Computed example of a mutant assay.
Amino acid sequence: MRQLVLDLGAEKPPTLESFVVGQNAELAQLLRHFARRTQPAPADRFVYLWGEPGAGKTHLLHALAAEGNGRYIPAGSPESDYLYDPAVSLYLMDDCQLLSADAQISAFALFNQVKENGGLLVSAGDKPPVGLALREDLRTRLGWGLIYQVHGLTDEEKISALTQAAQARGINLSPGVLPYLITHFRRDMRSLSAMLDALDQYSLETQRPITLPLLRNLLQLEGEPKA
């Protein structure tokens, strides 16, 4: 079976520039300040992101961590990742809803250390802090600062973003390709962008234009079920 798309580890790393903003303009602006380490008001040094899977929370955290002096902390990280380090100016905690009992204690301590030492912390979960099944003191910490819902893109916004990406790269797409793709493939933008790259490569290999039959053929080769 061909594996043009599924090797996500070979993709370009997430950046703030590659995040499709959609309805998240205010949040994107704030996180650009965080990336530049522009010091916000004390109450705004903590940001909590929540939203459905695929909305872009993890993308944003990885992008911020890659800006330098940032530490990405996924759920399941060792206790050492939660230890405060003066050399780290920005902490990024992901999937807070999955924190174990011990990790919740470590995360609580990290919040206090960041507050005392003037750092920045962005955390994320699948629902607002009040809805998380976590210890009460940690829920309070998660709600300390600004809380943003990360809104997923509508189908129209996904098609628009993919169309712009294709035009920028000189990729010609036949009508119907993108509407079919977003209803028969994974719906997150990372996977959709990877499939656009794969379509371009497959088109060059087969010397065929990017049409609906070509897309269907590639999806079959990839063994992708309908989304």
Score class of each variant (00 low, 15 high):
83 L>M: 11
64 L>D: 07
71 R>L: 14
48 Y>V: 10
80 S>M: 07
88 V>S: 07
92 L>C: 13
66 A>P: 00
85 D>Q: 13
50 W>T: 05
89 S>W: 05
48 Y>H: 13
53 P>N: 11
79 E>L: 12
63 A>P: 07
90 L>S: 02
50 W>H: 15
68 G>D: 02
59 H>N: 08
61 L>W: 11
88 V>D: 02
82 Y>E: 01
80 S>N: 04
70 G>Y: 06
61 L>C: 10
87 A>K: 14
87 A>Q: 14
88 V>K: 06
87 A>V: 07
80 S>G: 00
52 E>M: 15
89 S>N: 04
93 M>K: 03
65 A>C: 05
88 V>L: 12
77 S>F: 08
67 E>F: 01
73 I>V: 14
58 T>R: 11
62 H>D: 00
82 Y>G: 00
51 G>S: 13
87 A>G: 08
80 S>D: 13
65 A>I: 08
89 S>Y: 01
51 G>N: 12
83 L>E: 15
50 W>K: 00
90 L>Y: 00
56 G>F: 10
64 L>Y: 06
67 E>N: 03
71 R>K: 14
61 L>V: 09
75 A>W: 02
73 I>F: 06
51 G>D: 13
72 Y>G: 09
80 S>F: 00
57 K>L: 07
49 L>F: 09
75 A>Y: 05
79 E>P: 01
54 G>Y: 02
60 L>Y: 10
85 D>K: 01
77 S>P: 05
79 E>H: 08
55 A>S: 15
58 T>F: 02
91 Y>T: 07
81 D>N: 09
94 D>C: 01
88 V>W: 08
67 E>T: 14
83 L>R: 15
52 E>Q: 15
52 E>R: 15
91 Y>L: 09
94 D>A: 12
73 I>P: 06
51 G>P: 10
52 E>I: 14
81 D>A: 13
